[in-house]
Amino acid sequence: MAPEKLKHLIAATLVITFLYYSLHLYLSLPVKGIPVANGVQKGKKVWQQNNCTACHQIYGLGGYLGPDLTNSYTLRGPAYIKAFLQTGTEVMPNFHLNEQEIDALLAYLQNIDASGKADPRTFTINTNGTIEQ
């Protein structure tokens, strides 16, 4: 085959596979269409509007100045988190959130907590390099 044709064939194969992979993923997302409580939606909004992600990670992703919060809801409990949010810390500012916003954040953190465990200690490593929980 002429090299130019071969290049086009490889490129087309890759692009089609990529589009198929993307579309397949969008249509079969891990948990789709499950109705989510209103508080959770609002909590996500408060989380984004205050850019909590700049200092905190969820499943290890985010900024690194503060701790990972994936499972902080069971680890610390709602009262502890509430106290943190009401006062802030030496590093974390007090965002002056009102009662509803804090409750919404708590609902959001509870929802994240219920989605899985991010603690690396809960995984085992297989000999082929993959990990399992």
């Binding site: 969008y26 948990v31 929802n111």
Partner: peptide
Amino acid sequence: FPYFRNNIVTDMTVQWK
């Protein structure tokens, strides 16, 4: 779109894709 955002795992999968 709520379809992509409603679930944290779904949301983060597409975000990091």
